[in-house]
Design a protein around this nucleic acid. Structure first.
Lengths: 217, 217
DNA sequence: CACGATTCTTGCATACCGTGAAACTTTTCT
DNA sequence: AGAAAAGTTTCACGGTATGCAAGAATCGTG
């Protein structure tokens, strides 16, 4: 081995190790910043991938290696980094599955609050001007819902309340509920005047609101 | 008046009158049929707009007059005919707003069941192979959600239960709930083996499932 | 039915999108 | 240092989507 091993590094470093990984992250955020900046100033339609790439200092071909299009770049959904998964989520008695799933997704949402206040404000403005972007946000990220449904079905099995025959339908219902909660949270977050509460607060309120609405009927 | 009035036609015919309107509908369904047929056989990626247009007997330029892309053509979301609106929906005491809204959208869903059994089966197969299409289906149809939220807010005002300050949030929560119900219905409909129950049945089941899931927490 | 007005289709031109393949550069590992 | 792995660039290409102007079909009216 050439260099001295970093201490407590026997465990495989999952990310952030090495220059390569760091540069990848830098490129990803550079593109994301450029995309948010340009789209906030000119509008989604009047910004080309080429312009974003130029401002980020890469070729447009590289852009497409990271993001599938402007929309994903604005939202920060890079192809290079895996989408969230519920694989490691375990059932805990006393914790509602809906809550467990939403909590598990908090980290993903935290990424939306990264950067300066100005940056967040720009992104919020974009989401106000282009509400359709919210749809693809944290929902239907290319089959992610299927994974979610399977994992939730597994949790339902561990819970043991819902009969096996109903679990798939029930799991998909929960997926749709979670999706609704997250989208509502994104909506109120984007509508908020000035930079206010973090997204996680909006998630809590959104969950309470949707559950209350469902119970009112 | 040039021609003899058709009997019982004192009421303004809202649609389907005239040769022009009929031809428009014919062209729209011709494109839709061609799109579903080709995509079912070759897959979404291997079908070009040009191929769909050719099979439908129009130019690709005309195709784009009717649909924004293959996806919309497969789903039957034509630009020529306005998306559903809740403008005319009125509050009725004793009828839950969620139910009223869903009922009002039934007609749109009926359109999904049109055509031969084979045609419906083809479309179901497409939706199984391309679950992402479901996302854009009856949700976020280019700002339709904003209209929905406003109309639901109006209904909430007529109902008079929710305080005014909470109505917007509540309305959006209902929008997300309705969206979840419709998407769940579409999902189970598309997953169904063989041509089975009409979509409206799936809507009823989906609504019950989601509300039950929300109440279980 | 004949006329103008409206509406839809078409063809052309154009810009952008998104991907594959091969050459080249940078990082990693030993 | 040198080979292997990973990332970027260049080039090429087909598909997507829209604007515009000319032409054809339909509608309303006298």
């Amino acid at each position: 081995m050439p260099t001295i091993e970093s201490p407590t590094a026997t465990e495989a470093p999952p990310s952030g190790t090495g220059l390569r990984e760091r540069k990848k992250r830098e490129t990803a955020t550079a593109i994301e910043m450029a995309a948010v900046d340009l789209v906030a100033r000119l509008g989604l339609a009047d910004v080309t991938v080429e312009a974003i790439s130029a401002q980020a200092g890469v070729t447009s071909r590289t852009f497409f290696n990271y993001y599938a299009g402007k929309e994903d770049a604005v939202l920060g959904h890079s192809r290079m980094f895996p989408p969230p998964s519920l694989q490691r989520l375990e059932f805990r008695p006393g914790v509602a599955i809906l809550d467990a799933v939403i909590d598990a997704l908090r980290d993903e949402f935290a990424a939306f609050d990264f950067g300066t206040k100005e940056f967040q404000a720009k992104r919020r403005a974009i989401l106000v001007a282009h509400p359709n972007l919210l749809v693809s946000s944290f929902q239907a990220l290319d089959g992610i819902e299927v994974d979610f449904a399977l994992q939730i079905e597994r949790l339902l099995g561990d819970e043991g309340v819902v009969p096996a025959a109903e679990r798939s339908r029930e799991a998909w219902a929960l997926v749709m509920l979670v999706g609704g909660v997250l989208r509502l949270a994104m909506h109120s977050w984007s509508q908020e005047e000035q930079s206010g509460h973090p997204l996680s607060d909006h998630v809590d309120i959104a969950r309470a609101t949707i559950l209350a609405a469902a119970r009112r009927e």
